[in-house]
Amino acid sequence: MGRYVVRRLLQVIPVVIGVTFIIFCLVFALPGDPIQALAGEKRADPNIAAILRDHYHLNEPLYQQYWHYISGVFTGDLGETYNGRAISDIVSQRFPVTLKLGLTSFAVEAVIGILAGILSALKKGKFLDNVVLVATLVLISIPVFVLGSVLQLELGVNLKLTPVAGIEKGWPQSYILPAIVLASTSMAYIARLVRSSLTESIRADYVRTAIAKGLPRRRVIGLHAMRNSLIPVVTFLGFDLGALMGGAIITERVFNMPGIGQQLAQSVYLRERPVVVGLVTLLVLIYLAANLLVDLMYAVLDPRIRYE
């Protein structure tokens, strides 16, 4: 197990190099001049522009620029924006917002999704099951920005139950509504996933054995059936945790939350190559960590899987 973790961690290095290079090339290929973008509508002063271009190695070929960047990353320097702000600064400012939003959202989707799935599976074909099926279908079909705007209008503006936007009220008031909106689709998937996998394991032979052993129903379902049904659910949750930590561009935009997602969208627009590459690298690392976590959880949940 220990060796497996080390091997997986070593695999992170080539992935990071590859991903950053691809992102670097993509941002490089974007039309537009970042230095001109700094000056906005006016024409940039040629002298200053030349100094800046030199300082940020913009006149050098792509591979050299990349080399400057990646050697910085491995010494812990994520670089700076074209107006001299350290990227690590941006991350430490923006990341807590994304982290709070992501984790709240994760809790919402895990708790509500799993509970709804269990109820649905136990009452299969009954009224409650149909309620869950219809509700999840609705949630999966509605785009996030529609759901976000509608809830913002109803709960925020009309009923004044939650702040409309922004993060002034702090956690949890300002975060709860965006978290629910962000969680909605995954929550619906999880409910359906739990429903189908629990329905399947309830019919399994080992559940029949558990009943024949005279175990109480709670134990039969909660332990014998659920332990098996949770395996696919944990996989989904793990990957989703990685995705949530990457910020939610649309949700953050609708609720005007200064998180990673919003920053990323803005930086792409401003051709802030180092910011885009830096944030994406960070997201890749988070995603890889979530992946590793899922694989390790697998081994814990399913003893048939063993890593050497």
């Binding site: 032979d205 080992y206 014998h224 332990r227 098996n228 949940l301």
Partner: peptide, 10 residues
Amino acid sequence: DALSSLNPVL
């Protein structure tokens, strides 16, 4: 069938 009748994860 003891393989399917025993819980695989316990």
